[in-house]
Amino acid sequence: MMNEVEQDRQQVIKVEHLTKRFGHFTAVDNISFEVYKGEIFGFLGANGAGKTTAMKMLCGLSKPTSGKGSVAGYNIEKESESVKANIGYMSQKFSLYEDLKVWENFRLFGGIYGVNDKEIGPRTDEMLAQLGFEKEKNSLVSSLPLGWKQKLAFSVAIFHEPKIVFLDEPTGGVDPVTRRQFWELIYKASDRGITVFVTTHYMDEAEYCNRVSIMVDGRIDALDSPRNLKSIYNAANMNEVFIHLAGGSNRKAD
Protein backbone atom coordinates (compact mmCIF):
# COMPACT_ATOMS: atom_id res chain seq x y z
CA MET A 1 0.00 0.00 0.00
CA MET A 2 2.65 2.45 1.13
CA ASN A 3 4.93 1.33 -1.68
CA GLU A 4 2.36 2.03 -4.36
CA VAL A 5 1.90 5.55 -3.13
CA GLU A 6 5.66 6.13 -3.05
CA GLN A 7 6.15 4.88 -6.58
CA ASP A 8 3.76 7.51 -7.86
CA ARG A 9 5.96 10.16 -6.40
CA GLN A 10 9.06 11.41 -8.06
CA GLN A 11 12.33 9.97 -6.83
CA VAL A 12 14.93 12.73 -6.48
CA ILE A 13 17.59 10.64 -4.79
CA LYS A 14 18.05 6.98 -5.62
CA VAL A 15 20.95 5.05 -4.13
CA GLU A 16 21.72 1.38 -4.86
CA HIS A 17 24.37 -0.62 -3.00
CA LEU A 18 26.52 2.43 -2.46
CA THR A 19 29.86 1.58 -0.83
CA LYS A 20 32.93 3.62 0.05
CA ARG A 21 36.14 2.06 1.29
CA PHE A 22 39.26 3.82 2.52
CA GLY A 23 41.90 1.09 2.40
CA HIS A 24 40.53 -1.72 4.56
CA PHE A 25 38.03 0.51 6.28
CA THR A 26 34.51 0.44 4.89
CA ALA A 27 33.03 3.82 5.75
CA VAL A 28 29.78 3.29 3.87
CA ASP A 29 28.68 -0.30 3.55
CA ASN A 30 26.27 -1.18 0.75
CA ILE A 31 23.47 1.29 1.42
CA SER A 32 20.32 1.60 -0.70
CA PHE A 33 17.46 4.06 -0.33
CA GLU A 34 15.25 6.53 -2.17
CA VAL A 35 14.18 10.05 -1.31
CA TYR A 36 11.07 11.59 -2.85
CA LYS A 37 10.34 15.08 -4.07
CA GLY A 38 9.36 17.51 -1.35
CA GLU A 39 10.21 15.06 1.39
CA ILE A 40 12.10 15.96 4.57
CA PHE A 41 14.51 13.09 4.92
CA GLY A 42 16.37 12.69 8.21
CA PHE A 43 19.78 11.07 7.92
CA LEU A 44 20.77 10.00 11.40
CA GLY A 45 23.69 8.11 12.84
CA ALA A 46 26.26 8.36 15.60
CA ASN A 47 29.51 10.18 14.94
CA GLY A 48 31.66 8.02 12.69
CA ALA A 49 28.72 5.98 11.40
CA GLY A 50 29.44 7.14 7.83
CA LYS A 51 26.86 9.89 7.42
CA THR A 52 29.29 12.53 6.19
CA THR A 53 30.98 10.15 3.76
CA ALA A 54 27.64 9.12 2.32
CA MET A 55 26.53 12.73 2.02
CA LYS A 56 29.78 13.70 0.28
CA MET A 57 29.17 11.04 -2.33
CA LEU A 58 25.64 12.32 -2.90
CA CYS A 59 26.95 15.86 -3.35
CA GLY A 60 29.50 14.76 -5.93
CA LEU A 61 32.48 15.52 -3.68
CA SER A 62 33.62 11.95 -3.37
CA LYS A 63 33.48 8.98 -5.74
CA PRO A 64 31.84 5.74 -4.56
CA THR A 65 34.01 2.60 -4.45
CA SER A 66 31.09 0.60 -5.78
CA GLY A 67 27.35 0.88 -6.22
CA LYS A 68 25.55 3.71 -7.93
CA GLY A 69 23.35 6.63 -7.15
CA SER A 70 21.50 9.46 -8.78
CA VAL A 71 20.62 12.85 -7.38
CA ALA A 72 18.12 15.13 -9.11
CA GLY A 73 18.21 12.70 -12.00
CA TYR A 74 21.97 12.85 -12.53
CA ASN A 75 24.48 10.09 -11.96
CA ILE A 76 26.57 11.06 -8.92
CA GLU A 77 29.71 9.53 -10.37
CA LYS A 78 29.57 10.61 -14.00
CA GLU A 79 27.53 13.80 -13.85
CA SER A 80 28.72 15.37 -10.62
CA GLU A 81 28.78 18.84 -12.21
CA SER A 82 25.06 18.63 -13.01
CA VAL A 83 24.38 17.22 -9.56
CA LYS A 84 26.14 20.19 -7.99
CA ALA A 85 24.18 22.70 -10.07
CA ASN A 86 20.88 21.26 -8.80
CA ILE A 87 21.54 21.00 -5.09
CA GLY A 88 22.00 23.41 -2.26
CA TYR A 89 24.29 22.78 0.67
CA MET A 90 24.69 24.07 4.18
CA SER A 91 27.37 22.63 6.39
CA GLN A 92 27.67 22.14 10.10
CA LYS A 93 30.39 24.72 10.12
CA PHE A 94 29.05 28.16 9.45
CA SER A 95 29.01 28.58 5.70
CA LEU A 96 28.66 32.27 4.87
CA TYR A 97 31.46 34.81 4.53
CA GLU A 98 31.68 36.78 7.75
CA ASP A 99 33.49 39.72 6.19
CA LEU A 100 30.91 40.18 3.47
CA LYS A 101 27.66 42.04 3.92
CA VAL A 102 24.41 40.08 3.95
CA TRP A 103 23.43 41.09 0.43
CA GLU A 104 26.96 40.45 -0.84
CA ASN A 105 26.70 36.85 0.30
CA PHE A 106 23.46 36.46 -1.64
CA ARG A 107 25.06 38.17 -4.63
CA LEU A 108 28.10 35.88 -4.49
CA PHE A 109 26.30 32.57 -4.20
CA GLY A 110 23.62 33.67 -6.65
CA GLY A 111 26.41 34.43 -9.11
CA ILE A 112 28.21 31.15 -8.45
CA TYR A 113 24.99 29.19 -9.03
CA GLY A 114 24.24 31.12 -12.20
CA VAL A 115 21.15 32.98 -10.99
CA ASN A 116 20.23 35.73 -13.45
CA ASP A 117 21.80 39.07 -12.49
CA LYS A 118 18.49 40.92 -12.65
CA GLU A 119 16.80 38.42 -10.38
CA ILE A 120 19.39 38.45 -7.65
CA GLY A 121 18.43 41.84 -6.22
CA PRO A 122 14.64 41.33 -5.95
CA ARG A 123 15.04 37.76 -4.76
CA THR A 124 17.44 38.88 -2.03
CA ASP A 125 14.91 41.46 -0.81
CA GLU A 126 12.16 38.87 -0.91
CA MET A 127 14.12 36.37 1.14
CA LEU A 128 15.21 38.97 3.67
CA ALA A 129 11.59 40.10 4.01
CA GLN A 130 10.53 36.53 4.70
CA LEU A 131 13.11 36.31 7.46
CA GLY A 132 12.30 39.79 8.75
CA PHE A 133 15.93 40.76 8.19
CA GLU A 134 15.36 43.71 5.84
CA LYS A 135 17.28 46.05 8.10
CA GLU A 136 20.34 43.84 8.10
CA LYS A 137 20.82 43.87 4.34
CA ASN A 138 23.90 46.06 4.63
CA SER A 139 25.30 44.58 7.84
CA LEU A 140 28.42 42.50 7.87
CA VAL A 141 27.51 38.89 8.57
CA SER A 142 30.02 38.81 11.43
CA SER A 143 27.90 41.31 13.35
CA LEU A 144 24.84 39.03 13.46
CA PRO A 145 23.95 36.51 16.19
CA LEU A 146 24.53 32.82 15.41
CA GLY A 147 20.85 31.94 15.04
CA TRP A 148 20.38 34.66 12.42
CA LYS A 149 23.46 33.55 10.54
CA GLN A 150 22.16 30.01 10.42
CA LYS A 151 18.83 31.12 9.01
CA LEU A 152 20.62 33.29 6.48
CA ALA A 153 22.88 30.40 5.49
CA PHE A 154 19.80 28.28 4.85
CA SER A 155 18.27 31.03 2.70
CA VAL A 156 21.50 31.31 0.73
CA ALA A 157 21.54 27.51 0.26
CA ILE A 158 18.07 27.56 -1.32
CA PHE A 159 18.53 30.90 -3.10
CA HIS A 160 18.98 29.30 -6.51
CA GLU A 161 15.87 27.11 -6.05
CA PRO A 162 17.70 23.79 -5.93
CA LYS A 163 15.80 20.53 -6.30
CA ILE A 164 17.39 19.22 -3.12
CA VAL A 165 19.06 20.93 -0.22
CA PHE A 166 21.57 19.06 1.92
CA LEU A 167 21.80 20.25 5.51
CA ASP A 168 24.68 18.88 7.54
CA GLU A 169 23.79 19.39 11.20
CA PRO A 170 22.35 22.83 10.47
CA THR A 171 21.19 23.61 13.99
CA GLY A 172 24.33 22.80 15.93
CA GLY A 173 24.84 25.15 18.86
CA VAL A 174 21.55 27.01 18.40
CA ASP A 175 18.95 27.61 21.12
CA PRO A 176 15.61 25.69 21.04
CA VAL A 177 13.56 28.71 19.99
CA THR A 178 15.78 29.45 17.02
CA ARG A 179 15.85 25.76 16.15
CA ARG A 180 12.08 25.77 16.07
CA GLN A 181 12.13 28.80 13.72
CA PHE A 182 14.74 27.12 11.60
CA TRP A 183 12.50 24.08 11.16
CA GLU A 184 9.68 26.37 10.09
CA LEU A 185 11.95 27.54 7.27
CA ILE A 186 12.63 23.92 6.37
CA TYR A 187 8.89 23.19 6.19
CA LYS A 188 8.32 26.23 3.98
CA ALA A 189 11.03 25.08 1.59
CA SER A 190 9.56 21.59 1.56
CA ASP A 191 6.12 23.02 0.78
CA ARG A 192 7.62 24.71 -2.27
CA GLY A 193 8.77 21.31 -3.49
CA ILE A 194 12.39 21.49 -2.38
CA THR A 195 13.53 18.14 -1.02
CA VAL A 196 15.37 18.44 2.29
CA PHE A 197 18.07 15.97 3.21
CA VAL A 198 19.13 16.70 6.77
CA THR A 199 21.53 15.19 9.29
CA THR A 200 21.06 16.00 12.94
CA HIS A 201 22.02 14.95 16.44
CA TYR A 202 18.84 16.28 17.99
CA MET A 203 16.29 13.50 18.26
CA ASP A 204 13.40 15.92 18.70
CA GLU A 205 14.29 17.21 15.24
CA ALA A 206 14.19 13.66 13.91
CA GLU A 207 10.51 13.65 14.86
CA TYR A 208 9.92 16.55 12.46
CA CYS A 209 11.13 14.53 9.46
CA ASN A 210 8.82 12.68 7.09
CA ARG A 211 11.14 9.71 7.06
CA VAL A 212 14.28 8.90 8.93
CA SER A 213 17.17 6.57 8.20
CA ILE A 214 19.53 5.48 10.93
CA MET A 215 23.10 4.53 10.04
CA VAL A 216 25.12 2.17 12.18
CA ASP A 217 28.65 1.14 11.25
CA GLY A 218 28.23 2.26 7.64
CA ARG A 219 24.94 0.39 7.11
CA ILE A 220 21.40 1.74 7.14
CA ASP A 221 19.81 -0.30 9.92
CA ALA A 222 16.40 1.34 9.90
CA LEU A 223 14.43 3.51 7.49
CA ASP A 224 10.86 4.54 8.02
CA SER A 225 8.64 7.33 9.27
CA PRO A 226 9.31 8.30 12.90
CA ARG A 227 5.91 6.94 13.88
CA ASN A 228 6.50 3.53 12.34
CA LEU A 229 10.00 3.34 13.78
CA LYS A 230 8.67 4.02 17.26
CA SER A 231 6.07 1.30 16.96
CA ILE A 232 8.56 -1.21 15.44
CA TYR A 233 11.00 -0.71 18.27
CA ASN A 234 8.29 -0.20 20.83
CA ALA A 235 9.81 3.12 21.87
CA ALA A 236 8.25 6.23 23.35
CA ASN A 237 10.36 8.61 21.27
CA MET A 238 13.08 8.73 18.59
CA ASN A 239 15.73 9.00 21.24
CA GLU A 240 14.96 5.47 22.43
CA VAL A 241 14.90 4.18 18.85
CA PHE A 242 18.25 5.73 18.18
CA ILE A 243 19.87 4.39 21.34
CA HIS A 244 18.44 0.95 20.67
CA LEU A 245 20.02 0.86 17.20
CA ALA A 246 23.21 2.85 17.62
CA GLY A 247 23.96 1.13 20.92
CA GLY A 248 24.90 -1.97 18.96
CA SER A 249 27.68 -0.14 17.11
CA ASN A 250 31.14 -1.69 16.97
CA ARG A 251 32.75 1.54 15.88
CA LYS A 252 34.23 4.11 18.14
CA ALA A 253 32.91 7.59 17.66
CA ASP A 254 35.47 10.00 16.30
Binding site: K84, S91, K93, S95, Y97, I112, G114
Partner: peptide, 10 residues
Protein backbone atom coordinates in the same frame (compact mmCIF):
# COMPACT_ATOMS: atom_id res chain seq x y z
CA UNK B 1 34.29 25.92 6.36
CA UNK B 2 33.38 27.99 3.32
CA UNK B 3 35.66 25.88 1.12
CA UNK B 4 33.28 22.97 1.57
CA UNK B 5 30.40 25.11 0.36
CA UNK B 6 32.41 26.22 -2.65
CA UNK B 7 33.37 22.67 -3.54
CA UNK B 8 29.73 21.59 -3.43
CA UNK B 9 28.86 24.47 -5.75
CA UNK B 10 28.98 24.02 -9.53
Amino acid sequence: GTMEVLLVSP
